[in-house]
C-alpha cells in the first residue's frame, strides 16, 4: 500500500496538511465564523425576547379577558337584582290598584243592589194598589156591589202575603 511508504509519503503530506489546515483555521474559519455566530446569537436573543414579550402580552390579554368576564358577571348579577326588585314593586302596585278597583266596584255593586231593592219595593207597592184596584173593579162588575178599597187591600195583602 502506498500509504505505508512513510519515507516518501509522510513529510510532504504532513507539511502541506499543517500549512493548509493553518490557512483553513486562521484564514477561513476564524475570519468568517465569528460573524456568523454573532448573527446566530443575535437571532437567538431576539427570538427569546420576542417569545418573552409575546408571553407577557398573552398574560395581559388573559388578565383583561378575566376582568371583562368578572365585570360582565357582576353587571348581570346587578341587572338580575334590579329586575327582581322591579318585578316585586310592580306586583305590589298592581295589587294595590286591584284592591282599590275592587273596593270601588263593590261599592258600586252595593249601591246598585240597593237601587234594585228599592225599585222592587216600589214595584211591589204599586202592584198592591193595582191589584186592589183591579179586584175592586172586578168585584163591582160581577156583583154590582163595591167592596170598598180597604176590604180589597186586606184581601190582596192576604194573598200576596201568602205568595210572598
Amino acid at each position: 500500500m502506498p500509504q505505508f511508504d512513510f519515507a516518501n509519503v509522510f513529510w510532504p503530506q504532513l507539511f502541506w496538511l499543517t500549512a493548509l489546515f493553518a490557512v483553513l483555521y486562521f484564514g477561513i474559519i476564524r475570519t468568517t465564523l465569528p460573524r456568523l455566530s454573532k448573527v446566530m446569537d443575535e437571532r437567538e436573543d431576539r427570538i427569546t425576547a420576542d417569545l418573552a414579550s409575546a408571553r407577557e402580552a398573552k398574560e395581559m390579554s388573559d388578565r383583561v379577558a378575566e376582568e371583562y368576564q368578572a365585570e360582565i358577571n357582576r353587571s348581570r348579577e346587578e341587572a338580575r337584582g334590579k329586575l327582581a326588585a322591579a318585578k316585586l314593586e310592580a306586583a305590589k302596585a298592581s295589587k294595590k290598584r286591584l284592591a282599590a278597583a275592587d273596593k270601588r266596584l263593590s261599592a258600586k255593586v252595593a249601591e246598585a243592589e240597593q237601587q234594585i231593592s228599592a225599585a222592587r219595593n216600589a214595584a211591589n207597592a204599586a202592584l198592591r194598589d193595582i191589584a186592589a184596584e183591579g179586584a175592586e173593579a172586578i168585584v163591582a162588575r160581577l156583583t154590582g156591589d163595591a167592596p170598598g178599597r180597604k176590604a180589597a187591600l186586606a184581601r190582596v195583602d192576604a194573598i200576596l202575603g201568602g205568595v210572598n
Binding site: V23, G27, I28, R35
Partner: peptide
C-alpha cells in the same frame, strides 16, 4: 515538502470550504 497530488486535493478542499464559508457569511 514537495507539492503532491495529495497537497493539491487538500488545497482544493480548502478552496471549496473557503467559497462555502465566505459566500455564506
Amino acid at each position: 515538502a514537495s507539492f503532491t497530488n495529495s497537497s493539491l486535493w487538500m488545497a482544493i478542499a480548502i478552496g471549496v470550504i473557503g467559497v462555502f464559508m465566505f459566500v455564506g457569511t
